[in-house]
């Protein structure tokens, strides 16, 4: 530092560094409060996040979008009877309701050969994420899986689903791999993130350490195309290796493939 700098120190302006963090720094302080604009921006972000958690997915629209891509689908629900119960009882969100279980058994009975992959779309904790991203992601993913010779079950649309609801669904349909695309617990900055959880040989009681996960799938995060490519690679890798989760991560690292996050989103577990 030169003598001149010491003589005339520059005044630190935290506002000039805003782009270095997503944190809400340099908001200002009228007395002991937030400025009105910052206060209301926060409230709007919170309202969006709440709406994402509490609103219902437009399943009709999703089913129609899948149909347009020649992807049949089947709606089911978890054992949580409504959204209030769903948020309070994660255990019920991991089990199928009786009608759902029967519908899946009927579907499985119609298969000549069990499919390789079952894709499940679950609402999870963000209807917004599912409304925005689930149909395009499922379509892009199905296209890639089919191109690689993998067979697909109809896409299961699961209402009031936790991640582990994929286990009884995958088990009922006899799939080698179940992929559940599910709305992540919204933060204030992003309420539309989708997560993808993959499990080889799914069955109820599968520990989270046997799953692989991609998160933050949204515009401005992990894009649909990149997510679809990664999920398809993982499906192929799981079928080849005959396992998923921590074991697959180790196997992929040995081969020098890109590592995969195993971090489960706790809000959805």
């Amino acid at each position: 530092m030169s003598k001149e700098d010491v003589a005339r120190p520059r005044r630190f302006d935290i506002g000039a560094f805003r782009e270095l963090t997503e944190a809400r720094i340099a908001l200002g302080r009228p007395g002991a409060a937030l400025p009105t604009k910052a206060e209301q921006t926060f409230l709007l972000d919170h309202a969006r996040a709440r709406a994402a958690v509490w609103s219902e997915v437009d399943w009709t629209r999703i089913s129609a979008a899948l149909n347009a891509s020649e992807l049949p689908s089947l709606p089911v629900a978890s054992a949580a009877a409504d959204r209030q119960i769903y948020v309070r009882r994660p255990d019920l969100g991991r089990q199928l309701c009786a009608e759902g279980a029967e519908a899946l058994d009927r579907l499985a009975g119609s298969f000549k050969v069990a499919p390789d992959i079952t894709i499940v779309i679950g609402d999870g904790l963000s209807a917004t994420a599912v409304d925005f991203n689930a149909a395009p992601l499922a379509t892009a993913l199905a296209e890639r899986l089919k191109a690689r010779g993998m067979t697909l079950a109809p896409i299961i649309l699961a209402e009031r689903a936790r991640v582990a609801l994929g286990d009884p669904i995958g088990k009922a349909l006899g799939a080698k791999v179940v992929v559940i695309l599910i709305g992540e617990r919204p933060g204030l900055s992003a309420a539309d993130s989708l997560g993808a959880y993959l499990t080889f040989a799914p069955e109820p009681g599968t520990p989270d350490s046997r799953r692989n996960c991609l998160s933050n799938i949204r515009e401005g995060g992990l894009t649909i195309e990149r997510a679809a490519a990664s999920i398809a690679d993982l499906c192929a890798g799981m079928i080849k290796a005959g396992l998923s989760g921590v074991g697959l991560q180790a196997a992929l690292e040995r081969e020098g493939s890109a590592s995969v996050s195993l971090t489960a989103d706790e809000g959805n577990a």
């Binding site: 944190a23 809400r24 720094i25 908001l27 302080r29 937030l34 910052a38 204030l188 900055s189």
Partner: peptide, 19 residues
């Protein structure tokens, strides 16, 4: 900052709240 924890994705108090 601003009651928004951008790493843990939850809301705590803002610095202004302690003021």
């Amino acid at each position: 900052p601003g009651a928004d924890d951008v790493m843990l994705n939850y809301q705590s108090l803002s610095h202004q709240d302690v003021v």
